[in-house]
Design a protein around this nucleic acid. Structure first.
Lengths: 197, 197
DNA sequence: TCTATTTCTATACATTCGCATAGAAACAGT
DNA sequence: ACTGTTTCTATGCGAATGTATAGAAATAGA
């Protein structure tokens, strides 16, 4: 009944995600975006709502992929799961490790003063999810006696989220998967010391 | 002998610094830059080398101000000086605290894939200075017996730098001077635990 | 094969970008 | 006052921005 699309939507979103991840939002023009995603301008406008719409969909994909893949182990893993999660941030080949840092961190910084509302929401959504997962892991650690009960969990979870942002920021700034390693080791070491005390 | 300039160079650089700090590099056009700094396009081009030249001078100003004011206490202060430095990052009114995060962090992330060489250099210059100062403070802590000698100082200093980046990234992302507080407390707490162990 | 529907390609749009230039304006020295 | 020098204002440049649109192309069903 109609001319078929020349692209696969999922693949296009994945490519758009990588493109924005690497180049940022403003620095990536629509014409180069076509080239990198295989989409045409008409499709970007009609099917995705323009450049910003595609960006939002790419963010959603990025966030959901991390939430569905990297975070679940935290739900029942206690401190070892947190340590594993943090180490993955600086492990070559890991899904959450990249010389481009993290799309959500990059977005939060690049668009902090522009924030289109929908962008702010997408960024907050991701960090809330991570904070919640950290909190779950810490609660399990306390319940199993692996972490003293006098440790203030809410602040610790928030602090770990900020630490994750620092790891990603360092990785991107130095264009290396492993630049944030020393911070990861501080965070892991701190969790270990809390456990012992 | 000539028509006097209508602006004060120092003041203009300070204003440009704040403008780039808040809005980022790409998002800030030359015409709005004129408005925010009091400079005219001719002066931006002739006296500063265009938009990028002014940006570099603003970065240099920002870095030198921090190096000259915020870092010196680290040179002889040991761990308490580190703790004070970190707390300042999330203290309203402190020079190193801002809802816009840190100009160098923002630059490192926004321009990570563009890097004009001179920008990369300016970013690296700043973090090298901070790392060196952290190392000095940690050495003093070890020499005075305040920190065990088996603590690996180089990695710790690097990790603290990454932590500082995380604090700034969090502050900017949440548009708050104090959003990174929990990470600061983790870092300070870790230093304290290292001291005790 | 013809039609209806959807997507594609190609082009054009107004706006903005940073930068450049020409002429007016403001001084110091004579 | 006049001159020489520098800086200012005003305007314009080509290129790039994201978006819009018109007509060609490709399909399914009749």
């Amino acid at each position: 009944m109609a001319r078929p699309k020349t692209y696969n939507r999922q693949e296009a979103v994945v490519k758009a995600c990588k493109a924005f991840w690497e180049h940022g939002y403003q620095a990536l023009g629509v014409r180069e975006l076509e080239r990198l995603t295989g989409l045409n301008q008409f499709a970007i406008r009609t099917d995705f709502g323009g450049k910003e719409g595609l960006y939002l969909e790419a963010m959603r994909f990025y966030a959901d992929a991390a939430i569905a893949t990297a975070m679940p182990p935290l739900r029942a893993g206690g401190i070892p799961a947190i340590v594993a999660f943090l180490r993955n941030l600086v492990t070559v080949g890991s899904m959450t490790s990249s010389p481009w840092g993290c799309l959500v961190v990059n977005t939060g910084i690049e668009n902090a003063r522009v924030q289109s509302g929908r962008l702010t929401e997408a960024v907050a959504y991701y960090w809330d999810a991570l904070e919640t997962h950290f909190k779950l892991a810490l609660e399990i650690a306390q319940d199993s006696g692996d972490l003293p009960n006098d440790v203030e969990i809410d602040g610790l979870a928030k602090g770990l989220v900020a630490g994750v942002m620092g790891v990603h920021a360092t990785n991107r700034s130095e264009n290396s998967n492993t630049a944030g390693t020393d911070l990861v080791e501080i965070l892991c070491g701190h969790l270990t010391l809390l456990r012992a005390s």
